[in-house]
Amino acid sequence: NLFRVAGDMSHLASIFILLHKIVQLKSCSGISFKSQLLYLIVYITRYLDLPWTPSPYNFIFKILFISSQLYIIYLMARAYRPTNDPNLDTFRVEYLLGFAAVLAVLFPVRYTVLEIFWAFSIWLESVAILPQLFMLQRTGEAEAITAHYLFALGTYRALYIPNWIYRYVTEPTHKIDTIAVVAGVLQTVLYSDFFWIYYTKVMKGEKFKLP
């Protein structure tokens, strides 16, 4: 449906915005390496079913997400490493990994390796942006392009919510993927005050600056 496709396109756009920023400005300043590494873990643990993906649409996106995220990690860890300031990126990701691991082991859809990793990736994705938001809070401002990246990334998960409602209403089975929905709503809520500042500042041509 339209919400789902727009969400996935927004997700892909966010990655291209981030790559564009890093390559054009030859800098990854303002970007949390920890958040990016968490996203790589998210894609790898979620797409373990890659060889058995029945839908060409999903298959292509999975390849795109894993490969572009690997490239981002390469750029941040190797090519533009000196522009990356670890002193600003101090969020304790152990807590996020622990949170996702505990929920994944306690409440998977089924007790299989793939399902536990899938649930882990969903919970981890819901909080993976926290090191990035924490970094923004520490520096107090961000380049416009970084704000656009975060806006596109947040829009992706926000659009999945009307997608789930649409699917619930239109599909005869009326099934709800509880883990995905609860984690998806949590993820969207974490973006809410970023969205507000983006709307009140960046969309009106001002610098992204925290009050």
Partner: peptide
């Protein structure tokens, strides 16, 4: 609809 892994979203 047949879904191998059961999760058809990204």
């Amino acid at each position: 609809k047949i879904m191998v892994g059961g999760h058809d979203e990204l």
